[in-house]
Computed example of a mutant assay.
Amino acid sequence: MTTTTYNSEKAPKPVGLYPHAKKVGNLLFLSGVGPRSATSTDIPGVELDSLGNIVNYDIEAQCHSVFQNVRAILEASNASWMDLVDVTVFLTNMDDDFATYNKVYAQYFNDNQPCRTTVEINKLPTPIAIELKCIAHLKEER
């Protein structure tokens, strides 16, 4: 089976040796996508101290940013938002952030409602509060 890798200039660079997405057959697998900016080291909605520790963050700003990054990767991979079939969401603070995340999620997924799993984790590799892992199904060879 042929595989194709994709990267987007409009999404943040991966923090390790992996592509933004890999197509296998009619499935497109996105690597973990966070809210980091594609054009700078900024993380929307995050305030860091001089040691790089999170002082304050805005989960709503991070949610909008992560969804925009997912969209950019899908577009670079010749896919669309409507192709998403499965979304795994990692939150670092379920108690404080779930309601806001769920509200913003509904704005983006009103028309397409992929399967979804949301889990709380202790930490992510960069000072972010949300990361998405997505799978899209491409209806035709693209």
Rank of each mutant, 00 (worst) to 15 (best):
75 E>K: 01
64 H>D: 15
106 A>C: 06
64 H>T: 02
119 V>C: 10
41 T>W: 14
102 N>Q: 06
17 L>C: 10
132 L>E: 01
25 G>H: 03
120 E>T: 06
96 D>V: 09
108 Y>I: 01
65 S>Q: 10
135 I>E: 04
99 A>Q: 08
77 S>T: 01
70 V>C: 09
94 M>H: 14
62 Q>K: 05
24 V>E: 12
81 W>L: 08
115 C>R: 01
56 N>L: 10
17 L>S: 11
14 P>S: 06
132 L>P: 05
110 N>C: 08
128 I>N: 13
117 T>F: 06
128 I>S: 13
6 Y>D: 00
84 L>C: 00
12 P>R: 02
37 S>F: 11
70 V>S: 06
37 S>G: 12
34 G>R: 02
11 A>P: 01
131 E>D: 09
103 K>Y: 02
75 E>N: 06
90 F>N: 05
117 T>S: 07
72 A>F: 07
129 A>F: 09
104 V>H: 02
77 S>Q: 03
90 F>V: 00
51 L>Y: 14
43 I>S: 10
38 A>C: 12
39 T>L: 13
34 G>K: 05
81 W>T: 01
79 A>N: 03
10 K>W: 05
112 N>R: 05
2 T>Y: 12
105 Y>R: 04
51 L>R: 12
43 I>E: 10
38 A>P: 11
95 D>I: 13
91 L>D: 00
107 Q>R: 05
125 P>F: 14
36 R>M: 12
68 Q>V: 08
12 P>T: 00
22 K>F: 03
80 S>N: 08
27 L>M: 07
88 T>E: 04
51 L>F: 15
119 V>N: 08
49 D>I: 15
53 N>E: 15
39 T>N: 12
64 H>F: 10
85 V>M: 04
130 I>V: 14
131 E>P: 07
71 R>M: 12
12 P>L: 04
111 D>V: 05
87 V>T: 00
